[in-house]
């Protein structure tokens, strides 16, 4: 592993943590969001991008294999998707309160894993990898912002703080969170479809209920169930936020837990 790659990664970790502190200090001391927060997110994402690029150049393939690969690639993609949301959907900015610590935790987790790159299996040499992973990241990115909003809303609901008054109204944030979940559902569906096409080519079956497929399907179903629950009953808003958090937890388990604890083809080379 290159020293420069490591340096940019650790720099990204440090900046994500700094951004988290700036963000929470703003809430606790009831200050408006400073411009440095946006700047620090940009810097952190950029540093992660440079680290990935260096790794890529050295290994000759993208970060798809090890737990470190996946955490680093998520640090960049989720950070980037959140950055776009932060810049384009201004009212979703309160989500940063939970998104930034989560990204920081993910970065710290990555720092504890084995960073050595491994070879890519032959079945990964397909455009389907890009489509499947790409739509999956978009799903997780959208789900992450929804999670951030739901967590902020739950906190605002249970711990009244002056800093919350600076945020848009609860109903607006709630609606926004569900918008993110709705679009995330579309991307999750695309992830399942592209995954099935790839699995058919690579392993000769489009669906096999292996650990990862099962948990991905469970996440999709629970997300569909939550969207249904909202149109079926007039549930209290907090119940909805809990559902969003549950879906996000399932998604994280599927993306970061299952592939590294099961021995299936998704784990890589067999």
């Amino acid at each position: 592993m290159l020293e420069a790659e490591k340096a940019f990664f650790y720099f990204s970790v440090a900046v994500f943590i700094t951004a988290t502190i700036i963000n929470w200090a703003g809430l606790i001391f009831n200050k408006p969001l400073p411009k440095t927060l946006l700047a620090s997110i940009i810097v952190a994402v950029l540093a992660a991008a440079i680290s990935i690029t260096l790794r890529w150049l050295q290994a000759g393939h993208g970060p798809f294999m090890t737990l470190y690969d996946v955490l680093l690639s998520n640090l960049f993609t989720l950070g980037f998707i959140f950055l776009l949301t932060y810049m384009l959907v201004v009212r979703s900015r309160p989500a940063a309160l939970f998104v930034l610590p989560l990204l920081s935790l993910m970065a710290l987790w990555a720092a504890t894993t084995d960073m050595a790159p491994v070879l890519l299996p032959e079945t990964y040499a397909t455009v389907l990898l890009w489509i499947h992973v790409g739509v999956g990241k978009i799903f997780l990115g959208l789900c992450l912002t929804a999670f951030g909003l739901a967590a902020v809303l739950l906190m605002r609901y249970s711990i009244p703080m002056a800093g919350f008054k600076q945020m848009p109204a609860t109903t607006e944030l709630d609606e926004m969170a569900w918008r993110f979940m709705a679009v995330a559902f579309v991307f999750h569906s695309l992830m399942l479809i592209s995954g099935a096409v790839w699995a058919q080519d690579a392993w000769g079956r489009f669906w096999a209920w292996d650990s990862l497929e099962t948990w991905a399907f469970i996440t999709w179903l629970v997300l569909g169930l939550s969207l249904h629950a909202r149109v079926t009953w007039s549930l209290p808003a907090w119940a909805g936020w809990l559902m969003i958090i549950l879906v996000f937890m399932l998604a994280m388990l599927t993306f970061l837990g299952v592939p590294f604890s099961s021995i299936g083809p998704h784990k890589g080379i067999m």
Partner: peptide, 16 residues
Amino acid sequence: LKLSFVAMAALLAGIL
């Protein structure tokens, strides 16, 4: 729609 919810929940339980 309540039945859909219950059946989807049952499918989830079945999968688990």
